[in-house]
Amino acid sequence: MYEFLKEFHSGWAYIALVLLVVAVVNALMGMFSKKEFTARDRKIAIFGLIGTHTQLLIGLILYFVSPLGFASLGQMSDKALRLTSLEHPLINIIAITLITIGWSKHKKLTTSESKFKTFSIFYGLGLLLILSRIPWSMWL
């Protein structure tokens, strides 16, 4: 079970990152080109949201069954264990919270420019945080 979850979490991460990058790039292009916010733009953003939320759910389950997650939380002197047991989950929860806030805020906005700007900021910050805490040595 653990091995399957670990592989699924790693594999889904590629999908979630691609969806999130596409959403950020789309928002930036929409903001700079001053185009109209359409249903297509909304779908791109929701796919980024769904991808990251799915990754979060898989990661939370993995966190509690993995020997590198909750079980090793007390071993903060080891950099690799600190990354997998504290930094990676905490920062990614913050990142996905920012992405969710961006999704929620866009619904209240009326102009296309403000919607694209909101997605650019919140999804972009979420993407940067996620990229900063990926355990690259374990992933590649």
Rank of each mutant, 00 (worst) to 15 (best):
I134M: 08
I58Q: 04
L49E: 08
K43F: 01
Y63G: 01
V21N: 04
F116G: 06
H88N: 00
R82K: 14
H106C: 04
E113K: 13
S137G: 09
L60T: 07
E36R: 11
F64H: 11
T38R: 11
L127E: 07
K6H: 13
D78R: 10
S137T: 07
I91G: 12
K115D: 01
F116R: 01
F119P: 10
L56N: 07
M31C: 14
N92V: 13
L20K: 00
L86D: 03
S10K: 14
G74H: 01
I134T: 08
I93Q: 05
F119T: 10
K115M: 12
K117S: 10
T110K: 13
L68D: 07
I101T: 04
I44H: 09
F4I: 15
L125E: 07
L128N: 04
S132L: 10
K117E: 09
K35M: 09
T54R: 03
V18D: 01
M31W: 15
L20V: 09
G124M: 08
H88T: 01
S85N: 07
K35P: 12
S132T: 02
S85P: 11
M1H: 12
I58V: 13
A39Q: 15
H88P: 11
P67W: 07
F8I: 15
S112I: 03
V25W: 02
I15H: 08
I61G: 04
E113S: 13
S112C: 00
V18E: 01
N26M: 05
I46Y: 05
F119M: 13
L86W: 05
